[in-house]
Amino acid sequence: MAGPTTAKRGTKKSTSGPRPSPSSGGRRFRLPRPRLRRPGRRGVIIIAVLAVLLGGFGAWAVYGSNWLRLERVRVTGTDVLTPQQVVAAASAPINAPLASVDTDAVERRLLARLPRLKSVAVTRSWPHTLGLEVTERAPKLLLETDGKFAEVDDEGVRFGTVTRALKGVPLLKMTVSDSPSSARFGTGRLLRAAVTVAQDLPAAVRKDVRALRVRSYDSITLELAGDRTVMWGSREQGAEKAKVLAALLKAARDARHVDVSVPSAPAVSGS
């Protein structure tokens, strides 16, 4: 007859769940994973047909429908030019699929037809707009030819012609046609040297400059308002010359002639 202790043991519930059988080697039982059924031949055909139909519809929507066609051209960044001039020069194919517009060709046409443009960025703005963001060249010097004035930018590029001299833009006087400097350096290099000098001028001086006279690569002279002249020399050491010139003009306001061709040894006369 079992005692109280034995009875209690028989009635005690197990909290650890069923024990693995000896044949399982101590491993728990796992349910088998469901296997994915591969589509049959008919399913593959249906999927392929749907893919073709979707691709065809997408191509038609982009190239064949009226949903994504070019309807307008938007221009930003103009100053001297008008947006209408830019649109006309771009010759964008209105009513053509926007995706088929050759943006590189549009950019090339604009730069070739409008020399005033320095750069162009052409972008598509879905669903119907082509954007043209332009940057115009800014004149740094004027070169007089046959009573007209050619505009020259900071790269030495002649990009436009005006009938009147622009206020605040110095006149470039090239007097080097028969000089050895012209043959050695070439007109183009001398022109770029003059542009460099114009850029190096301090703002306080630039507004008073009426002309830059280039006789040779080493002989560039500034003609200022009030019949004042500045011997600049070559384009080298431009930053140093600019500082020295600004200081001299401030210290010697009555000076008629200033020489900063050697910035470490400047000279003033005619005061």
Rank of each mutant, 00 (worst) to 15 (best):
A251R: 14
K243N: 11
A255L: 06
E240A: 15
S264P: 03
D254S: 11
A242G: 14
H257Q: 13
L248A: 10
K241E: 01
K250N: 13
G238L: 03
P266W: 08
G238D: 01
S261L: 05
R256G: 07
A242S: 13
E240C: 03
H257Y: 07
V244Y: 07
A255H: 08
R235V: 03
A251K: 14
A246E: 14
L248N: 11
G238A: 13
D254H: 07
V258S: 02
V258P: 01
S234K: 09
V244C: 06
L245M: 11
L249F: 00
A239R: 13
P263W: 11
R253S: 14
S261V: 05
K241C: 02
L249I: 08
L249R: 13
A242I: 09
P263V: 10
A251S: 14
S261A: 15
V244K: 10
S264C: 06
V260F: 05
H257I: 05
H257L: 11
A247M: 08
A239W: 02
P266K: 08
A267K: 15
P266C: 08
A239G: 04
G233V: 05
D259N: 15
A251W: 00
V244W: 06
A252I: 00
G238T: 01
A242E: 03
H257K: 12
K250I: 00
V258W: 03
A239K: 13
V260L: 05
V258F: 13
L248S: 10
G233K: 04
A265D: 12
P266V: 07
A267V: 12
K243G: 07
V262T: 15
R253W: 02
R256Y: 00
D254Y: 01
K250P: 00
R235L: 02
A265N: 12
G238R: 01
V262E: 08
L248Q: 09
V258A: 06
K241Y: 00
R235G: 12
V244R: 12
P263C: 11
K241M: 01
K243S: 14
E236T: 14
G238Q: 01
L248T: 07
K241W: 01
A247P: 02
L248Y: 08
H257A: 14
G233E: 09
R256H: 04
K241F: 01
E240P: 04
A242T: 06
D259E: 06
G233I: 08
A267R: 15
S264V: 12
H257W: 05
E236P: 00
E240N: 10
L245I: 11
V258H: 02
V260E: 02
K243R: 15
V244P: 09
A239H: 06
R256D: 03
V262R: 10
D254I: 00
S234V: 09
D254R: 09
S264F: 06
V260K: 04
E236W: 03
V244G: 11
G238Y: 02
K250M: 01
K241G: 00
L245S: 09
Q237T: 11
A247K: 15
G238V: 02
A251L: 10
R253P: 13
R235Y: 05
K243M: 07
L248M: 12
R256K: 15
V260A: 04
Q237C: 03
Q237D: 15
R256P: 00
D254V: 00
A267S: 12
L245Q: 11
R256E: 08
P263F: 06
E236F: 07
A247T: 13
D259C: 09
A242M: 04
R256V: 03
E236D: 15
R253T: 14
G233Q: 08
A247E: 13
